[in-house]
Design a protein around this nucleic acid. Structure first.
Lengths: 145, 145
DNA sequence: TGAATGGGCACTAAATAGATGCTATATTCT
DNA sequence: AGAATATAGCATCTATTTAGTGCCCATTCA
């Protein structure tokens, strides 16, 4: 339905929280306490972000996650791609040609649309997302470098 | 996954086909023969488009559907909205506030993203979509007025 | 050693999307 | 009138995707 999944929502919420918090490491427990989202699911999401090196993890007491790069250098496209595979508007717009309909005439156009949607996400950074929250407009850009 | 449903895909394919064909009325049978998509599903889609007055229907031999307005005056946003309810990138971006997380800080940002994605679809017309097909660059703009 | 914290794996449940069957109604043609 | 062509409506079934959970392991630190 042209909609982001919960994984993306949760991931973005968590990352924005980290960007805003200013702490060095933020644990799943803390995020869950603040954002009220399913603990285990958030853990899955953060694990994926950790694998993709969007965040780095430290175990043990005092541990948790932190961003590996400045929030203004992290695009939503990157995050969403990691969390839901791709941002393709249609299956035929991710490279795999539209085998279903050899005579489909809209593929080229759809691809263009897909590209534009992608650009929107490419151009939107985590910092921009976080800046608009309640604690926004502070120091999101320099956090967690 | 930020993806259009089959309903939208089929709808767009069919509408583009109609825009390109130059015929007055195009039947489901003809479209199916050409595009190889599930007949009954396409019928559902066209019925919805008919209800929304994107196309008008005529029954009986020689009947079928035709666009009610020029292809260059029909945005993808309009079509997609009809076929899948809305184009909201997140549930909290369609008016209904994000009740799940009172402390969600990204709502405002997500809304902005949603708006931009919407713009992409608002600015892309059926004519643009159809023009890129094999029979493109002809007379799509003046068809079926 | 024990408490805190992430990592991995497998699984269930819920929601959404895709597809189809059947019958009714309108229109045209013979 | 009757047959053929088309869309309209409704219900339903299935498949796929998404959401959410349980359990145990590994690491770190006091």
């Amino acid at each position: 339905m042209l909609r982001l999944t919960k994984r993306s929502e949760y991931g973005l919420m968590a990352l924005a929280f980290m960007a805003q918090s200013g702490q060095s490491y933020t644990s799943v427990r803390e995020i869950v306490a603040k954002l009220r989202i399913p603990r285990r699911l958030l853990a899955e999401v953060l694990k994926d972000l950790s694998r993709a090196e969007i965040v780095e993890a430290v175990r043990g007491p005092g541990g948790g996650y932190r961003l590996t790069s400045p929030a203004d250098q992290l695009s939503l496209a990157r995050i969403v791609e990691i969390l839901e595979g791709s941002v393709a508007v249609a299956k035929c717009a991710d490279g795999s040609s539209c085998d279903l309909s050899p005579s489909c005439t809209i593929q080229e156009g759809i691809n263009l649309v897909a590209q534009r949607v992608k650009s929107v996400l490419d151009d939107f950074t985590l910092a921009q997302l976080a800046d608009r929250g309640p604690q926004g407009s502070q120091s999101v850009h320099e956090v967690a470098v």
